[in-house]
Design a protein around this nucleic acid. Structure first.
Lengths: 326, 326
DNA sequence: TTGTAAGCGTTATCAC
DNA sequence: GTGATAACGCTTACAA
């Protein structure tokens, strides 16, 4: 591959001049510029980005750490984050952690190794001890001390679900979620506020008994049988709020298998947006997160951190997405 | 950040020795190694990857160019590709092209700029004029001259769909797909073989009339109304093969809205694996692509090309995924 | 306006 | 075994 030196020689100028031409920086006489540009296109010179990164101590790469890209919402978020980074001249390095902390740590190390300029992370692990606060890190839906956090307004989402179910005549309520979002975890995820908002709003409206189903978060695709059993064991329940659309869908299916009518007998609300899946039968009523707005907030924050600025936490509004299950 | 020079000074050795220690290369006396290692952990030295890339002319990054990460199959493939690259010591740079050729070209340029070592691409655009064959490029489901191609056995998938529908008593057949996968396109996609296998197998079995619905490929999420109209306009059709599960799901929904029973009156087979979506009602019968196997083939090929080897095209078997729509 | 030269932080060759 | 030193290809003072 041709280098800047080859160009300089052939154009009969110094390498600094070539650099000025390709970066449109500093003063270059018109004829000189034209000469250089001609040589560049003649020999098909393309400047080497590694060398550039080396000199500038910056490589315009941001890593995005998330559990996987197979879940619809993650895929959407990933898509939006990449788009938004690209807009700002950054490329995205993807890390599917599968929730494995070893892999997460390796990507956190990428920052120290100057492999990436910044890191956006979405994790349920206790990665806190491994992150160094001076680096440009932004987290989604999870608070770490001194790390800016972007999250959906999960609490308000819970409130919205509670109100909708109440307004539509439900009397007995159930919440279903995995324990990484529960009250019994040491991990401080924003997502736990879905439950909190739901339960607290019901309490404010005079409902003090909510059946709270919590199961261990393993693989994101796995929902234990006991969850469905709990649903079946509580035929009195007529209003269910599930932690995400996947759970909601499975619960609806199990209810219908039992001969219950959704939403007539039981109303079910999910979380994420109800955009998911093939609408073979009905769409899920859901609290909708906005992947674009979240991505913009995440990218703005991380770029701002890269540029050495302090940034604040951001909370992104959620919407009620009308569907056919509540 | 501390550098190798700081370590060398503090340990009272040369930088070459430090390099040997951190890379476990060459001979280093035990005591020297220990001394160096101690200093490294004392000052928390981490070696700079950009500098390493610079010296080695290699950065262990592979770009993956695909239309988006929101479609289930793409998300799955992306997930598997990242995992597989990671296994082999490469990181993944993601490019969601949204099918825009300008963006694709920019990522092809990443190769010239030494930004990435290799490129895996999934595109329907006519990017051929922009790719230089000497670079490590591998394509999925699309043939370019002198570029290794990995694809599912689309033809066989079409054959399987045809046989299943025939074996299960269908008489009037329809194929539905977008035109980037059709016969009327100049672009040579492997996916067009789904249609080809389906129609040719039917012909071999004596069926010469297949209704062939082709619509323009725009946004991957968009299916024109005319497609559904065509379905409705052909009430005699009792066996439909759709180019992917999304189309299949929408077609099923429209059929059921018309009061047709699926699979009793009409059988519908999709493509991708029927894994998608929330199973609110029924799963889609589908020809299943194997994202893991595809990812392994893609990554093996690209790494092999990076190492300067020639690689052959690979065709990955598909499976019949039993579902509830056929 | 332009060129020389000193970084940027590694690896690798080659003496010692 | 080990240490100078020359790449790697660029940016950017600083000098001219």
């Amino acid at each position: 591959m041709a280098t800047i030196i080859d160009v300089a020689k052939k154009a009969g100028v110094g390498i600094a001049t070539v650099s000025r031409v390709i970066n449109h920086s500093g003063y270059v006489k018109k004829e000189t510029r034209e000469k250089v540009e001609q040589v560049i296109s003649e020999i098909g010179f393309v400047s080497n980005e590694i060398a550039k990164s080396m000199a500038l101590q910056k490589n315009n790469l941001v890593a995005f750490l998330l559990p996987n890209s197979t879940h619809l919402f993650f895929g959407e978020l990933l898509n939006s984050v990449e788009k938004e980074l690209y807009q700002r001249g950054y490329m995205l390095m993807l890390c599917n952690s599968s929730e494995r902390i070893e892999k997460e740590i390796i990507y956190v190390e990428m920052l120290k190794k100057s492999r990436v300029d910044g890191l956006i992370m979405l994790t349920n692990n206790n990665i806190e001890p491994f992150i160094e606060k001076q680096f440009p890190i932004v987290s989604f839906d999870r608070r770490f001390e001194d790390v800016p956090c972007v999250s959906s307004d999960n609490y308000q989402g819970g409130v919205m679900a509670a109100r909708y179910l109440l307004d539509n005549g439900c009397h007995k309520f159930m919440f279903i979620g995995d324990d990484a979002q529960g009250e019994h975890t040491s991990v401080n995820t924003e997502v736990s506020k879905r439950r909190k908002g739901f339960i607290e709003e019901l309490r404010r409206q005079g409902i003090h008994h909510v059946i709270n189903i919590e199961y261990p978060l393993g693989d994101y695709n796995y929902i234990p049988e006991t969850v469905y059993q709990s649903v079946i064991d509580h035929p009195e329940v007529d209003g269910i709020f599930a932690n995400n659309d996947n759970i909601a869908a499975e619960v609806v299916k199990h209810l219908e298998d039992q001969g219950r009518k959704v939403p007539k007998d039981v109303k079910v609300i999910g979380f994420d947006g109800g955009r998911g899946g093939y609408r073979l039968n009905k769409t899920i009523t859901s609290i909708s997160q906005d992947p674009d707005a979240i991505a913009i907030a995440l990218v703005e924050s991380v770029v701002s951190r890269i540029n050495g600025n302090k940034v604040n936490d951001k909370i992104i509004p959620v919407n009620f997405a009308t569907g056919e299950t509540a």
